[in-house]
Amino acid sequence: MISINLVELVIENIFISNHNLLKVIGENCRNLVNFFTIITADNDIPFLFNILKNNSKLKDLRLTLPTLYFSDVNTGFIIELAKYLPRLINSIYLSNLIKSVNEYKEFLENCKVDELVYYMINFPPINDIVNVDECEEFVKRWTEKKRKVIWNFYKYQSDHCKIYVVWDC
């Protein structure tokens, strides 16, 4: 039985199918503040959207697509996900879900949260990133447009590209 007062939930077992568990969470949890999960199949996606819709107090969202499930999940939902984020979210961590500079840009452009402070992306090993500097240039323009200040920026480009942005509150 999942408590309706649950505020933090971490699902990290990569060897179970999550969609039944995510369905129950979406139906019962209304007070999540921190939600971390792995995505194991396309069946997880509708329940993930339901969780976002039903948890307006959510502040920290971390989603990971383990390499074990790359062939089972179509990551095309990621831009739509940005539109569904609760407005109070201030921390987003996505691992292996964004595969290109364009997806990186589109996700951030469609993210309508009020106080985004952390935006952390780990690109999958197989990606369309030729030059991670494009993401940095975009973030700087987006930051200026939103009248924010970048407090810290980290980028790493190799087999596993990473970009972490921290804005001043």
Rank of each mutant, 00 (worst) to 15 (best):
residue 146 K to H: 12
residue 6 L to Q: 00
residue 42 D to I: 08
residue 88 L to N: 13
residue 16 I to V: 11
residue 140 K to P: 06
residue 83 K to L: 08
residue 16 I to Y: 07
residue 123 F to M: 11
residue 160 H to Q: 09
residue 74 N to K: 08
residue 69 Y to G: 02
residue 129 I to A: 05
residue 112 K to R: 13
residue 166 V to N: 04
residue 87 R to A: 15
residue 64 T to Q: 12
residue 118 Y to K: 09
residue 125 P to V: 15
residue 69 Y to H: 03
residue 60 D to T: 15
residue 57 K to A: 07
residue 26 G to E: 07
residue 72 D to K: 09
residue 40 T to S: 11
residue 112 K to Q: 09
residue 28 N to M: 02
residue 86 P to S: 10
residue 18 N to E: 15
residue 165 V to N: 02
residue 146 K to N: 06
residue 104 Y to I: 03
residue 83 K to N: 15
residue 67 T to H: 13
residue 28 N to Y: 01
residue 119 Y to Q: 11
residue 60 D to H: 15
residue 126 I to H: 12
residue 124 P to S: 11
residue 22 L to V: 10
residue 132 V to N: 05
residue 155 K to P: 01
residue 61 L to C: 11
residue 169 C to W: 11
residue 100 S to Y: 04
residue 79 I to E: 07
residue 51 I to V: 14
residue 5 N to P: 02
residue 75 T to H: 01
residue 109 E to N: 15
residue 35 F to H: 01
residue 164 Y to N: 14
residue 76 G to V: 05
residue 151 W to G: 07
residue 42 D to N: 13
residue 106 E to Q: 08
residue 78 I to N: 01
residue 161 C to Y: 01
residue 146 K to C: 11
residue 47 F to L: 13
residue 166 V to T: 11
residue 156 Y to S: 04
residue 127 N to F: 05
residue 10 V to I: 10
residue 80 E to S: 14
residue 92 I to Q: 14
residue 15 F to E: 08
residue 87 R to P: 10
residue 120 M to Q: 13
residue 117 V to W: 08
residue 102 N to D: 12
residue 112 K to T: 06
residue 36 F to C: 11
residue 41 A to M: 10
residue 163 I to E: 02
residue 141 R to Q: 07
residue 140 K to H: 06
residue 1 M to N: 05
residue 97 L to I: 08
residue 148 K to T: 06
residue 25 I to V: 15
residue 49 F to H: 01
residue 59 K to T: 13
residue 42 D to F: 09
residue 150 I to M: 07
residue 159 D to P: 04
residue 150 I to D: 01
residue 142 W to A: 06
residue 120 M to C: 14
residue 86 P to H: 09
residue 28 N to I: 02
residue 115 E to S: 13
residue 38 I to H: 00
residue 5 N to S: 03
residue 42 D to A: 08
residue 152 N to M: 12
residue 139 V to N: 04
residue 41 A to W: 14
residue 124 P to K: 09
residue 32 L to K: 00
residue 20 N to I: 11
residue 82 A to L: 01
residue 106 E to M: 14
residue 165 V to D: 02
residue 60 D to P: 09
residue 139 V to D: 07
residue 59 K to E: 10
residue 92 I to W: 12
residue 128 D to F: 12
residue 116 L to R: 06
residue 124 P to E: 13
residue 154 Y to T: 11
residue 84 Y to R: 10
residue 158 S to R: 10
residue 52 L to N: 02
residue 134 E to Q: 12
residue 82 A to C: 03
residue 80 E to R: 09
residue 89 I to W: 01
residue 156 Y to P: 02
residue 112 K to N: 13
residue 4 I to V: 07
residue 88 L to F: 10
residue 85 L to R: 00
residue 25 I to Q: 03
residue 67 T to Q: 09
residue 103 E to P: 04
residue 24 V to I: 13
residue 94 L to W: 14
residue 41 A to K: 07
residue 142 W to D: 02
